[in-house]
Amino acid sequence: MSGIALSRLAQERKAWRKDHPFGFVAVPTKNPDGTMNLMNWECAIPGKKGTPWEGGLFKLRMLFKDDYPSSPPKCKFEPPLFHPNVYPSGTVCLSILEEDKDWRPAITIKQILLGIQELLNEPNIQDPAQAEAYTIYCQNRVEYEKRVRAQAKKFAPS
């Protein structure tokens, strides 16, 4: 494992614990031996107030490669969400998460999670990743928002 990646992720964890947006979660997972795995984080993004996503808490896994922060983490909703920019596998399609697009090593975990929260309610229809959600979003916004509200209710924190 890269010392650069681990040191950056340790800084990220410290900064997150000191200050993070209300309702968001970002925690490194534990290895079988109980030690912390900084390369694999369990996160959760709350649906934004005043949107059909409100009330939901959407679980996301963030996986970092050894060359982080040169390369972005892979962000994957578990379980996958109904959304035009979420692949059926759950992987998020967002330009700041793509090395050859808008990724920059200075982007923080907090910025990534806030960017994904923004994307939930403002899909990028130029870059669809899920045919069904994309089609319904474009053709029947009322039905799309109904499905999103049902999903938010399903993923409401207990």
Score class of each variant (00 low, 15 high):
82 F>P: 02
152 A>D: 00
6 L>H: 08
46 P>V: 09
99 E>L: 00
51 T>M: 02
127 D>T: 14
19 D>E: 14
68 Y>P: 03
74 K>H: 15
34 G>D: 10
131 A>I: 04
9 L>K: 08
95 S>M: 01
76 K>I: 14
134 Y>G: 05
130 Q>N: 13
109 I>K: 00
35 T>H: 06
67 D>P: 10
14 K>C: 14
145 E>H: 03
73 P>L: 04
9 L>H: 01
152 A>Y: 00
38 L>E: 07
4 I>R: 09
97 L>N: 01
67 D>S: 13
131 A>T: 14
58 F>D: 06
65 K>S: 13
71 S>F: 06
145 E>G: 05
138 C>E: 15
55 G>Q: 11
61 R>M: 10
100 D>W: 05
87 Y>P: 00
122 E>C: 13
45 I>T: 10
76 K>W: 12
70 S>L: 14
43 C>N: 11
118 E>P: 05
14 K>G: 03
76 K>V: 13
55 G>R: 06
50 G>S: 12
27 V>R: 13
26 A>C: 08
32 P>Y: 13
43 C>W: 06
41 W>V: 05
114 L>N: 12
135 T>P: 05
1 M>D: 08
42 E>S: 11
102 D>Q: 01
11 Q>F: 08
49 K>R: 14
26 A>P: 00
10 A>P: 04
74 K>L: 15
72 P>Y: 00
56 G>Y: 04
113 L>A: 13
140 N>K: 07
4 I>E: 12
8 R>V: 13
117 Q>K: 08
86 V>N: 00
83 H>F: 05
116 I>F: 07
134 Y>V: 08
19 D>A: 12
24 F>A: 03
67 D>K: 07
22 F>R: 00
20 H>Y: 03
108 T>I: 15
2 S>F: 14
19 D>Y: 03
76 K>E: 15
49 K>N: 13
151 Q>A: 03
143 E>C: 11
116 I>A: 15
148 V>W: 03
82 F>K: 00
71 S>H: 14
70 S>Q: 07
147 R>L: 14
93 C>F: 00
58 F>N: 01
3 G>I: 10
20 H>D: 05
24 F>K: 01
127 D>M: 01
41 W>F: 06
116 I>G: 05
122 E>L: 10
92 V>N: 00
136 I>Y: 11
85 N>Q: 02
68 Y>H: 08
23 G>A: 06
127 D>W: 01
154 K>N: 09
97 L>D: 07
31 N>T: 08
8 R>P: 07
55 G>N: 09
35 T>D: 02
118 E>V: 12
137 Y>H: 04
74 K>S: 15
54 E>A: 09
120 L>W: 06
21 P>V: 00
